[in-house]
Amino acid sequence: MTSRPAKGGGRWVSVAPERLNRWIDGFVDRHGPPSVTASDSVVRLQGADGAVAECQVPFPPLTSSGGGPMARLVTHVRTERRIGVLLVRLGGHAAGIFQGEELLSSKVGSRQVHGRSAAGGWSQRRFARRREKQVDQAHEAAAEVALRVLGPHVGELEAVVLGGDRRAVDALRPDRRLAPVFALEAEPFLTVPDPRLVVLKDTPAQFRAVRIRLSDPG
């Protein structure tokens, strides 16, 4: 479980699907029997002492059958889904298809992109043109990997989760070939280091987790 401050007060925690029942039991122990309300995207618990836990439903809408809101949320988050992942940072990229936590197929690559030059004059302009070309090549390489790994399977995917650097990902959006991939975009955006195979394999811990916003009593 991870925790961080939330805008507007409170804090966010991330809870693995397998630990959600225990987390709910702990909330009830600490704050008393909660009142529970649910929408397609949020299950809200308000403890007897006024504490609030807003559970964000991953890959909404919330499952419509299986008992009350909390039981449905637990069933929903434990459902195995086929999810595409595309990670892009400047000079590095990775794409993969997961069934639950299992990585079924993937491709990882990198392209060299030089840092910005502090030099001036003609040499700086030449360096800038060279770097711009490298950036374009890196984006093209990332797009090709996305097309190769995710493109043929968009009809099988429930969602595509993006991550890396937002600007690098956004640079791929104008590519019309990737429109079917971006049409499946789902939260959360994954903050990851350089996209390597080990990083890609670890992404289910983020995209399967339940994000919960906690507000203290009062």
Rank of each mutant, 00 (worst) to 15 (best):
H153M: 00
V192H: 01
V149W: 08
R211K: 13
L62H: 06
Q134T: 04
G8D: 08
P204F: 07
L162G: 06
W12K: 04
V154C: 09
G68F: 15
Q99F: 13
P152Y: 09
S64A: 15
H139G: 04
F27L: 08
V57Y: 07
V42C: 07
P33A: 15
I83C: 14
T203F: 06
M70T: 10
T191P: 04
V42H: 07
D202C: 09
A141I: 00
R126V: 04
H153Y: 10
Q99L: 15
G164V: 12
A186K: 04
S215V: 02
S65N: 14
G151K: 06
R213G: 11
D194E: 11
P217A: 12
V85H: 02
I24A: 12
V88Y: 15
A138L: 09
A71K: 11
R30G: 13
L103E: 05
F182V: 10
R116Q: 14
V145E: 00
D175I: 00
G155I: 00
F59V: 01
F182C: 12
F27T: 03
R22D: 15
R19M: 12
H139R: 05
V52T: 04
P193I: 04
A143E: 08
L162T: 07
L103V: 02
G50Y: 10
R211H: 12
V161Y: 10
D136L: 11
A128E: 08
I24C: 05
Q46E: 10
R130L: 12
I97P: 10
A71T: 08
R22H: 15
R131F: 15
S65F: 14
T191Q: 12
A183P: 09
G164D: 13
R78M: 03
P58S: 07
V135Y: 00
W122H: 04
V160I: 10
V85F: 00
R78D: 15
G120K: 05
A159F: 15
G155C: 12
P34T: 03
R148M: 00
G32I: 06
F59M: 06
P33V: 09
H31R: 07
G109K: 02
R19C: 09
F59L: 07
G26W: 13
S35M: 07
R22G: 13
T63C: 15
T2Q: 14
P61V: 00
F127R: 00
K7Y: 01
L62K: 00
W12G: 02
R44H: 08
V198F: 14
L87V: 03
K201W: 13
A51E: 00
S41W: 06
V149F: 10
V192D: 12
F182I: 05
G218Y: 14
A48S: 14
V160L: 06
D194A: 14
V36T: 03
P69K: 02
L200T: 09
V42P: 03
E101L: 06
P188A: 10
R173V: 09
V169H: 05
P5Y: 02
F98R: 01
V28F: 08
F207V: 00
E132V: 00
D165G: 13
D136Q: 07
V15F: 05
P217H: 12
A128T: 05
G66N: 13
D202H: 03
K201M: 10
Q46A: 11
R148Y: 05
L73Y: 12
P69G: 14
L103D: 00
R167C: 08
Q56V: 05
D40R: 09
P17H: 04
E158V: 14
